[in-house]
């Protein structure tokens, strides 16, 4: 049991418990808070995987911006008792659980059955420098397209949220 593994298991436990909280809390605000915790755990996983830049982006975008958006949305649409804002759908509850379980075990089986490549030497170079080279080199077009997508999404979100003028 290396320290690394212990850290991983702790982080994994935090992520999974927080995720269960997201789908289990009856109060949507609690779900949102658990979601932030889950996002932070995922960011920690990224740090452990030598992806410090992505981890920072995860914290900024998910734990920061996306979560805030969720909370605002919850605030705008909450019209009843906060304790009953996140109820289960009785029709799909059990079948949904079975399907999720089957899917998870299927994926786990796939992970076990597949012969994965051995871990290679850890990457020694400057990951951020290489990421920048890739983003602005090989993937420059996709990068610019993503920028345009974001712009369009923002404009679309404003129009949708604002509603049509009478």
């Amino acid at each position: 049991m290396s320290l690394n593994l212990i850290v991983f298991l702790l982080i994994a436990a935090v992520i999974l418990v927080a995720a269960v909280g997201v789908v289990a809390f009856k109060n949507i605000v609690h779900s949102a808070l658990a979601l932030i915790l889950s996002f932070l755990g995922v960011a920690a996983v990224y740090f452990q995987l030598d992806a410090g830049f992505i981890g920072l982006v995860q914290i900024l975008v998910y734990a920061g911006a996306v979560s805030v958006l969720f909370v605002f949305a919850v605030m705008l649409v909450m019209d009843r008792d906060a304790g009953e804002t996140n109820l289960v759908n009785p029709r799909t509850r059990w079948i949904g659980a079975i399907i999720a379980l089957l899917l998870t075990s299927g994926l786990a089986a796939a992970v076990y059955l597949t012969k994965w490549p051995q871990m290679q030497e850890p990457f020694a170079g400057d990951a951020v420098r290489q990421l920048a080279g890739l983003l602005l080199g090989d993937y420059a077009v996709a990068f610019e397209t993503a920028a345009i997508l974001l712009l369009i999404a923002v404009v679309g979100a404003i129009i949708l949220a604002k509603g049509a003028e009478e």
Partner: peptide, 20 residues
């Protein structure tokens, strides 16, 4: 919409089972 999602994931499970 959740019924449709159910059908979809059910289908994915079938495909996954077949692949396994």
């Amino acid at each position: 919409v959740q019924s449709y999602a159910l059908y979809m994931f059910g289908g994915i499970i079938v495909i996954l089972a077949a692949a396994l």
